[in-house]
Design a protein around this nucleic acid. Structure first.
Lengths: 336, 336
DNA sequence: CTGTTAGCGCTTTCAT
DNA sequence: ATGAAAGCGCTAACAG
């Protein structure tokens, strides 16, 4: 491996001078600068950032910890994060927690050991607070993505879950639906609670009684159980519309309904939180409340890098991104 | 920051003993082992992998370099790669080249400098050979993904592009189509050449004359030009079906056609290479030749780690993954 | 403008 | 079973 000493020897200067050329720091005569650069090229020298990190105590690496890159929301978010990181001179490590605390913990251990400069963190749930506290203890800056965690103060980028949910449910109500099911994420996750709150508020504002039997909590992961809606379908007065708290749940629901030959939207209207990326463009089907996923990632990295470079002086920043209701084919007026 | 010396002092042993406990290497009495572990916990010690990497010359990091994580093929591939990497004890950095050689070069420089142990590499095109040669020169193992590069020998995981394309075009022919357009990726990319070859062969096998005016080369990126099909549509005998060489092109085409009020599949059948991930399940629309994207990533990492750990002894391995024709709504029999 | 010294936190090697 | 010394490749701090 070629080191600065190899360069230094050939150029007949000290290693320090080579280091200065690499980092373009300090005053160096153009003559030696040119000479050193030429030799670096000849020898195909590449600085060893491991060695540099050891002394500078920074790795120029960030970790993006999400639940599943396969979820279109996080896919687009990851793209935004990577773009921003690259522009700011950082590399991005990534991991999928699958909404699983144990897996999340493993990644947190890795984060600690890898000495990344910061973390963009979509927590699995409220119990992630232990992991976040651990990051704090080790002085690793992080920005919370999409989900808040009680008891944890930090920068964050979140969406208007409650407002978005209310808007979506009011849309269903405006179509004449009164029996509206809610298929939710885990109540351990802040967005699930907020979407429930929005659902509840929409009913209340429209004088529709809340029926807890219309609500089931499945978690945000994709479900493969075609019987997942049975508790709702077996009710004496089953729902005529369903609000799914995220895109994966909506897909699971549509799949389950199809297996039972229940048509969407003729027999059941479906709407959900989060859009489907490029494919929505192809064949717009589900009515959704879309979030600006790319911005979540892009702005998240900006907050994070700002925090890293300005050494946690400023107050916590909370960016709240707007949602957008997009009405498509999966919801239709109730006919009776 | 807590170091092994802090632990050593408290435990009244040498740093070396602490190191041995951490790595579970060498013979150590259970007594000191327990004592040291206890103190590590008390002090919240986390090994500094930067320091370790500097001496061991391995980072336990891999880079996944793809063109765009947002493309469902690469999204799923990335998930497979991350799963495999994690299971094998590696962290995954990722980058998007956007099919752009300049951007790819920047990532290669980063790779070199970061001293990752290996790279999973979906090259932007044949000209990526310079970048790959650069990796070779620096002894960084890599596995080629999806695309071959002339003049570069390495492990690789690729799909049956030619066979898949032939199968897809023969499907179109079986529906009665004779004027079949090909909207292709750049001929600088091996898969584009192979898909063209499959297209050509399908025509030949069915005695359909090849008309070069039916072929346009746009590159694999998403296109936002609604006039992108005009060269085909303006022909005296325009195509009745189009084979798009990847999923992004298919989306671009469908969007362009819609803006011109040309219906799919009534006025034009469309089929493409690569599926759309979870959302295909939601509302199956495009007829595709699907590739096992997850396996591309998963097996790619396995090959890579194998190569890393067995020091490039073995012969180059070439995994060829099968394609699967999935017929959906976007293609229909030609009526005249 | 350039060089010297020391040390980042760890593991390898050789002793004991 | 444990320790001492050296060094991985680089840069901060100081000296000249």
């Amino acid at each position: 491996m070629v080191t600065i000493y190899d360069i230094a020897k050939r150029a007949q200067v000290s290693a320090m001078t080579v280091s200065r050329v690499i980092n373009n720091s300090g005053r160096i005569s153009d003559k030696t600068k040119v000479k050193v650069k030429k030799i670096m090229e000849e020898l195909n020298y590449v600085p060893n950032s491991t060695a540099r990190s050891l002394v500078t105590q920074e790795t120029k690496m960030l970790t993006l910890l999400i639940t599943d890159i396969t979820n279109p929301f996080y896919t687009t978010l990851a793209r935004g994060a990577e773009d921003a990181a690259m522009q700011l001179g950082y590399k991005l490590l990534f991991g999928n927690s699958d909404e699983n605390l144990q897996k999340e913990k493993e990644y947190v251990d890795t984060i600690l050991s890898t000495r990344v400069d910061g973390v963009l963190f979509a927590p699995a749930g409220d119990a992630s607070s232990d992991h976040l506290a651990s990051l704090k203890r080790h002085r690793i800056p992080f920005v919370l993505l999409d989900r808040e965690v009680p008891g944890i103060e930090s920068d964050m980028v979140i969406g208007e879950s409650k407002e978005g949910a209310r808007q979506l449910v009011e849309h269903l109500i405006s179509l004449g639906h009164k029996r509206i099911g809610l298929v939710n994420g885990s109540s351990e996750v802040s967005t699930a609670r907020q979407r429930y709150a929005g659902y509840w508020e929409a009913l209340k504002l429209n004088d529709i009684p809340f029926d807890e039997r219309l609500m089931i909590e499945l978690g945000y992961k994709q479900q493969h159980d075609t019987a997942l809606l049975d508790p709702l379908l077996r009710l004496e007065h089953p729902p005529t519309a369903i609000f799914a708290a995220n895109n994966f749940l909506a897909v699971s629901i549509v799949t389950a309904l199809r297996s039972k030959h229940i048509r969407v939207p003729e027999d059941m209207s479906i709407a959900c939180f989060d859009d489907f990326g490029i494919v929505s463009q192809l064949n717009p089907f589900l009515t959704v409340v879309a979030q600006p996923a790319y911005q979540f990632g892009y702005l998240g990295i900006q907050l994070l890098v700002d925090r890293i470079q300005n050494k946690s002086t400023a107050e916590w920043k909370k960016i709240i991104l707007p949602t957008e209701l997009i009405c498509r084919e999966s919801t239709k007026p109730l006919v009776r």
